[in-house]
Amino acid sequence: MRESLLSVGSRRLVVLLVLLCLSLLPVTATSQEVPGAQTLIPSPPQLNASSWLLMDADTGEVLVEHDADESLPPASLTKLMTAYLVEHELNRGNLGLDDQVSVSENAWRTGGSRMFIQEGSTVPLQELLHGIIIASGNDASVAVAEHVAGSEAAFAELMNQQAERLGMENTHFVNSTGLPDPDHYASAHDLATLSRHIINDYPEHYAIYAEREFTYNDIAQSNRNSLLWRDSSYDGLKTGHTEAAGYCLVASAKRDGMRLISVVMGTDSEDARAQETQKLMSYGFRFFETLTLYDEGEELDAPRIWGGESDQLSVGVDQRIRMTIPRGSDDSLSASLSMPESIEAPVAQGDRIGTLEITLADETLKEVPLVALEDVDEGSLFKRLMDMVKRFIAGFFD
């Protein structure tokens, strides 16, 4: 009789433990959807140009392109890299805006568009940066190249190193100005990539690209980007022209929180490059939108973790997730979380836990690592033993 009572008591204890464990098992969300309404998108405009591209500056998504990876003469669009290198060195503390730059005879004699600096003079770097961006000064570009690297040829090596670092695969520089050379070329895609870095990497200098006029030595010169006068949403970036390159324009505009970058190469005139750019921009802003899906550090799930000091692990993304999608199609946007069935402690903040997959109408747009948003240390011996029992029981009932 005593043995029978003990047996009944043991069975009751097992049942209680099972019920307790089942109550602790987590429920994991695996998908998320955002309501919205779909819209139809027409074919992109065809431009009277050799090459063009439209890119979302936030996401890097290419919305429209035509021969965008073809290497072409970039003319003064080259100066985007010249200016970017200066901004890069300023950010590293190797240069200062008040640095006095000596003007060599070589810089003074450089032909083409000019800032009108004088041989033997010294000019503050800040003035030269404005002269490069606004007045498209070849003389200013050579003076800066010599100041930074000792010679223009050495500066071109730095330009190519930066181009490689930024993933500009169809670009090669031999000078700081864009004066014609058969070995000097760039693609629309590469120039858009560079422009995106100019905007996002060093925003403290970007305002220069929107300035309409620059005066040096009482000589006033207007920015050749006519869109700065036509539409207040435009705030950059650079024009270019040679006989070989035609009329080129890299532009950026921001409307309702969305920033686009356009590159148009090889048009027939100043008016044509502006008009073709406006076609691209109008299409992009009308038919696409940029959405912030998740903020950096946002928790997306809290799955069960075994053998840890706590029973749940905060999981999310360590970067802000922005997506470019057809305007009004967010009802077809969804996100799914993929994680292992079992997660064991210890886990350190930043450890990859799984994958966030973002899809639009069953097409995968982006895959992002899911990471631990916190540390979970290994639990005590008793805690680990209890978790072993809970896992065994949970597995028994699966």
Rank of each mutant, 00 (worst) to 15 (best):
N217K: 04
M323V: 14
M281R: 03
F214N: 09
R196C: 04
Y247W: 08
S195N: 06
S232V: 11
T267H: 03
G266F: 00
D301Q: 10
T242R: 02
Y209V: 13
R255T: 02
T215E: 13
Y247D: 01
I321A: 10
D231G: 10
D318A: 15
S262G: 08
I198V: 04
D301I: 14
A220C: 07
D295S: 06
S252W: 06
N223T: 09
F288V: 08
T215F: 04
N223P: 03
S269A: 06
R259H: 10
V250C: 11
S252N: 14
E243Q: 11
D330F: 09
I208K: 04
A302R: 14
E211C: 12
S334G: 10
N200W: 09
D231Y: 14
Y294R: 02
V263N: 00
S336V: 06
E289S: 05
T324D: 12
D256E: 15
V315N: 02
Y202D: 04
D256C: 06
W229P: 09
S329C: 14
L291Y: 14
L249H: 03
G297S: 10
F214R: 01
Y216M: 04
S226Y: 01
G266K: 00
T292P: 04
I219N: 07
I199H: 03
G266V: 00
D201V: 05
A220G: 05
F285N: 03
G240R: 00
G284S: 10
N223M: 05
W229R: 11
T277Y: 02
E270G: 09
L280T: 15
S334D: 13
E309Q: 08
